[in-house]
Simulated scan of single mutants.
Amino acid sequence: MPPRRSYDQYCSVARALDTVGDRWTLLIVRELLAGPRRYTDLHADLPGVSTDVLASRLKDMERDGLATRRRLPPPGAAYVYELTGRGSALLPVLQALGTWGEAGLGERGPTDAVRAHWFALPLLRALEGETGLVEVRLDEGVFHLRAGAGTGPVYGDGPAGQEPDAVLSLDTDTCTAIGRGELPLADGVRAGRVAVDGDGPLAKRLREA
């Protein structure tokens, strides 16, 4: 592989950007925070990226120790990419970027793509301090979050797969308002814009917040 481009600056910020500063890299990390993903799944959930660029970024991420590639056992027998510990450690970086970017989110444009699970990181920020498995039901689809997860995937597509600690049902406008920092989750629950189902302590806390 060609040598990695570098800012050649003895600065931790510059070193970090040497590794994750290329276009698409952090968005690939966002997708892999859901756990192992096939190349075709990544390409489908990164609208606008070319196959050549995606393949190049994944190779760079392998080289830099952010991701690994492995083959699933039969009957799957497909290759998947997943984050290493160093790659997973970028979660708070993405959370901070998301918070910083809230002011520039604005209204959704006519050409803006959206996937239900892209709301996972904003909702994880809204659930900061909580721990538990949360299923989220949106107009665009269903996904689940692992609030307070220390290791492993922090979200995933589809239902939780086991009894969640809480189920949140809300429309896209409400979720967007939460993502833009305009509506605290607790205010959305109190206003009836977010329905909370479940019998566990987490669901009770969210209803009573």
Score class of each variant (00 low, 15 high):
Ala191Met: 13
Gly21Trp: 00
Leu94Thr: 07
Val53Ala: 14
Gln162Leu: 08
Tyr79Phe: 11
Asp18Lys: 00
Lys204His: 15
Leu91Arg: 13
Leu54Phe: 01
Ala77Ile: 10
Arg15Leu: 13
Pro2Gly: 00
Pro3Glu: 00
Arg4Gln: 06
Asp52Arg: 10
Ala44Asn: 14
Gly76Asn: 12
Val196Gln: 01
Ser50Tyr: 03
Arg57Gln: 04
Gly181Gln: 01
Phe119Glu: 12
Ala89Glu: 14
Glu62Val: 13
Gly152Glu: 02
Phe143Asp: 03
Asp60Leu: 02
Thr131Gly: 12
Val29Arg: 00
Thr68Asp: 12
Arg69Pro: 11
Arg4Ile: 05
Leu58Lys: 02
Leu83Gly: 08
Pro92Trp: 00
Gly104Leu: 15
Val142Asp: 10
Ser50Met: 08
Arg146Lys: 11
Asp157Met: 14
Gly98His: 03
Pro164Phe: 01
Arg71Ile: 13
His144Phe: 09
Ala149Thr: 12
Gly156Asn: 02
Val154Gln: 01
Ala203Asp: 03
Glu163Gln: 09
Pro201Asn: 07
Leu91Thr: 11
Met61Thr: 04
Ala89Phe: 10
Pro75Ile: 07
Arg69Ile: 11
Glu102Trp: 03
Thr40Arg: 13
Asp157Ser: 13
Thr51Pro: 14
Leu124Asp: 00
Leu46Pro: 12
Pro122Tyr: 01
Arg180Lys: 11
Met1Cys: 11
Leu46Tyr: 01
Leu97Cys: 14
Leu202Asp: 12
Arg193Thr: 04
Met61Pro: 10
Asp187His: 07
Glu62Pro: 14
Leu17Lys: 00
Leu72Met: 13
Ala209Gln: 12
Val13Tyr: 10
Leu42Thr: 08
Arg125His: 05
Ala147Thr: 06
Pro92Thr: 00
Gly35Ser: 07
Met1Glu: 08
Leu138Ile: 07
Leu170Phe: 06
Thr131Ala: 15
Lys204Trp: 11
Ser169Ile: 05
Leu91Cys: 13
Asp18Gln: 01
Gly87Ile: 04
Ala14Pro: 05
Glu135Gln: 11
Leu105Thr: 11
Ser169Arg: 09
Asp60Gly: 00
Lys59Pro: 05
Leu58Cys: 07
Met1Pro: 14
Arg70Val: 12
Arg86Leu: 14
Ala149Glu: 09
Gly150Gln: 14
Val53Pro: 13
Ala166Ile: 01
Leu91Glu: 13
Tyr39Lys: 02
Leu83Ala: 11
Gly200Glu: 10
Gly152Cys: 09
Gly132Glu: 03
Leu72Ile: 06
Ser56Gln: 05
Leu168Arg: 01
Arg115Phe: 15
Val114His: 14
Glu31Tyr: 05
Ile28Lys: 03
Leu202Trp: 04
Gly192Phe: 03
Arg205Gln: 08
His43Gly: 14
Ala44Val: 12
Asp41Ser: 15
Ala34Lys: 08
Leu206Phe: 00
Asp173Met: 11
Glu130Ser: 13
Thr19Lys: 01
Pro201Ile: 07
Ser169Asn: 05
Val80Lys: 02
